[in-house]
Write a protein that binds this DNA or RNA. Structure first.
Length: 662
RNA sequence: GCCGCCUUAGCUCAGUCGGUAGAGCGAAUCACUCGUAAUGAUUAGGUCGUCAGUUCGAUUCUGACAGGCGGCUCCA
């Protein structure tokens, strides 16, 4: 039998080997059970893939990102098999891996109940135990159409692939039909029979027993191919990991996220609420939440002024003409509350602040010498959000943007965009967020009716944003079709303390509204010119950012943001007067301090302050009074006893001024 | 908006296979004054989300609506 020469790559080791023709990838990694697939010539392949002369064969370990994707995809197949065994009438949608797990969509008469999920999961465990082999088989469109005639959604995918539209078929659909050739994976049971099969690009684990740990999470409806005009399928979500420990760790992370949920902490810390009487998605801030909100606003207002912005104020409603000029009514009416009619006019709640700022710009003649003119306010906007999307403070119907509009010449625009981006990142860093990436949202070429302006205008605007975003050195992710109707945007995605990303501020380039409002300035040669305007919200929305900060800090805010910075706790009743004197001095230094003079025991007062996540507990007993000192207790339980009063006050004041965490 | 689930005291939850409800925490009052995460006792607090229907009788069953939760779609 003739030999072939291949290169085996595992971890960082490369090794040339001469093997016999017909050797399969698994034979190179037979001693490494963690290797579940191979990358051959850059392509992921099953371990059953037959090697060719000259192939470079790289091990794919189950714990690598590719390995996890394969594991999760294979687990999705097991899910689908279990569902079809238990519900033979279920038709298959798609079943791709996703971040931390997988899903599979099914068309079934009645939605799955939690009890169904338990049954499905135990059937899956049975399939895993059966150690079925995943076996790849190349087929043709014609054969597949016959073989899968009972699977209407698969037929649709094959047809779409024929049209070259596999990538457009649906997010995740490429795992089914994305390959160069059409393949079906057979699941082969112990007896050698095909027990189940699915249209699939692969690759897969060698066998079902190689699934170390999985769990079904929930079921929910999802539109077929992500389009709300299509039928809703039942989607089952699951997660799968390279080990039981990794699965446990994942479930633990979910618990941690739940513990940090700003809706829960907002209630527990008495920060805000959503009274039904007011309406869905309309928060009220309680005194303690109000303190945080004010601290955020005061700081960001000060920073705007330092960066050359001028603070303005505008009303919440306007006659409809304003929103015709801005393009909101023709292009954004669905996002606005319906009008209220009086005195023969329609008034709308504003969904954006830009039209108002444009009117300030237009209130008198403007000179090129004034540009860039930067108008800024905390503008309260109201948007009609569909009932199903409201979510705590991160998705509401009424919110304040720290919104600015920079009016500048087209030549000034790139520098202004850069200025705004740097400013924004600086502000977010001041609030303790460190990891960012950018998203560039552009217009959807196929839906010109949703966007104003000419392709050339969009081209110019997009290239300015793209250039500045690229120069920032941050990762830039494209978001085709995500632009506002009036122009493209860069949005900042920030990662919080446990690695979740949130969309924060945006910078948007707008050539449309200056035209709609007929904004002009007089240039140095005396001619009238049209400015461009750059929209920027740094937090995005104050409400959302506050919600994100609650989760980022798990409610344990740094002192400068904490609603109560110092909780003063007497050891016994006789120490209360001394503490009131201490509190008086702290208040004089601008510190938010409360004295707990309730009849609770001291231990209970400490517990309460701990649960309220107050950064400094100042505890005073006989020894402290005698020494003219106080004792600190921190949230982590650390103590610092007998600190002289002046030093103690300075310590608190310094931590607030430096905006550090304690 | 669509699909599923949920809604009992301020909060977290138990309970009633249809006969108008209970705990812990919280609140108020009283006693206790204590050195680093819960002192004890007493009291108050609910038209069981809203409105209809079925029933002798509905918090419980049915429907509609509102609000919430998990997704989808959409977004700051």
């Amino acid at each position: 039998m003739p030999d072939i020469l291949i290169t085996r790559i595992h971890a960082d080791e490369r090794e040339e080997r001469r093997v016999t023709t017909g050797t399969k990838a698994w034979e190179l990694f037979a001693e490494q059970p963690d290797v579940i697939a191979a990358r051959v010539a850059g392509q992921l392949k099953d371990l059953a893939h037959e090697l060719a002369d000259g192939d470079e064969v790289e091990a794919v370990e189950i714990s690598s990102q590719d390995g996890l994707d394969i594991l999760r995809h294979s687990t999705a197949h097991v899910l689908a098999q279990a569902v079809q065994q238990l519900f033979p009438e279920a038709k298959l949608g798609i079943g791709p891996p996703i971040r931390d797990g997988f899903y599979y969509d099914f068309d079934v008469e009645t939605p799955f109940t939690p009890a169904d999920l338990e049954k499905i999961e135990s059937r899956m465990r049975k399939i895993v135990k059966e150690n079925q082999r995943f076996s790849r088989r190349v087929t043709t469109d014609a054969d597949a159409l016959t073989e899968l005639q009972d699977e209407p959604y698969k037929l649709e995918l094959i047809a779409l692939k024929g049209g070259g539209a596999a990538e457009d078929a649906a997010e995740g659909a490429s795992v089914e039909v994305g390959g160069a050739e059409l393949t079906i994976y057979d699941n082969i049971g112990r007896s050698g029979d095909v027990v189940w099969k699915d249209l699939c690009r692969g690759p897969h684990l060698p066998t079902t027993k190689r699934i170390p740990a999985f769990k079904l999470m929930r079921s929910a409806a999802a539109y077929w191919r992500g389009n709300e005009k299509n039928k809703q399928l039942q989607r089952v979500y699951g997660t799968a990991w390279e080990s039981k420990e990794a699965l446990e760790a994942h479930l633990h992370r979910l618990e941690e996220a739940e513990r940090r949920d700003h809706r829960k902490l907002g209630r527990e810390l008495d920060l805000f609420s959503f009274p039904d009487e007011i309406g869905s998605g309309l928060p009220v801030f309680h005194p303690k939440g109000g303190v945080i909100k004010r601290a955020m606003e005061d700081y960001v207002r000060q920073r705007h002024v330092e960066e050359g912005f001028e603070y303005v104020g505008t009303p919440h409603i306007s006659k409809e003409g304003t929103f015709h000029l801005s393009g909101h009514l023709p292009y954004y009416a669905d996002g606005m509350f319906p009008p209220m009619e009086f005195e023969g006019e329609n008034y709308y709640l504003k969904a954006m602040n830009c039209p108002m700022h444009n009117l300030i710009f237009r209130s008198r003649g403007r000179s090129y010498r004034e540009l860039p003119l930067r108008l800024f306010e905390f503008g309260h906007v109201y948007r009609y959000e569909k009932s199903g999307v409201i979510h705590g403070l991160t998705r509401v119907r009424g919110f304040a943007q720290d919104d600015s509009h920079s009016y500048c010449t087209p030549e000034q625009a790139p520098a202004e965009v850069k200025h705004l981006l740097d400013f924004m990142l600086g502000v977010l860093r001041d609030f303790g967020l460190e990891d960012f990436y950018l998203e560039l949202s552009t217009r959807d070429e196929s839906k010109p009716e949703k966007f104003v302006g000419t392709p050339e205008q969009w081209e110019t605007a997009t290239s300015v944003l793209e250039r500045v975003a690229t120069e920032s050195g941050l990762q830039l992710v494209p978001d085709p079709g995500g632009a506002a109707f009036y122009g493209p945007k860069i949005s900042i995605q920030a990662q919080d303390a446990i690695g979740r990303t949130w969309q924060m501020g945006t910078v948007q380039y707008d050539f449309n509204q200056p035209q709609g409002f007929d904004l002009t300035y007089t240039s140095s040669d005396g001619s009238k010119q049209q400015p461009v305007m750059i929209h920027a919200a740094k937090f995005g929305s104050i409400e959302r950012f506050l919600g994100v900060l609650v989760e980022h800090y798990a409610g344990a805010f740094p002192p400068w943001l904490a609603p109560v910075q110092v909780q003063a706790i007497p050891v016994a009743e006789r120490h209360v007067d001394y503490l009131y004197d201490v509190a008086k001095r702290l208040k004089a230094a601008g510190i938010r301090v409360e004295v707990d003079d309730s009849d609770d025991r001291m231990q209970k007062k400490i517990r309460n302050a701990q649960l309220q996540k107050v950064p400094f507990m100042v505890i005073v007993g006989d020894a402290d009074v005698e020494a003219g000192a106080v004792s600190f207790r921190y949230r982590n339980g650390d103590q610092d006893n007998g600190v002289p009063l002046d030093d103690a006050i300075q310590r608190v004041v310094d931590a607030v001024a430096a905006r550090t965490q304690v």
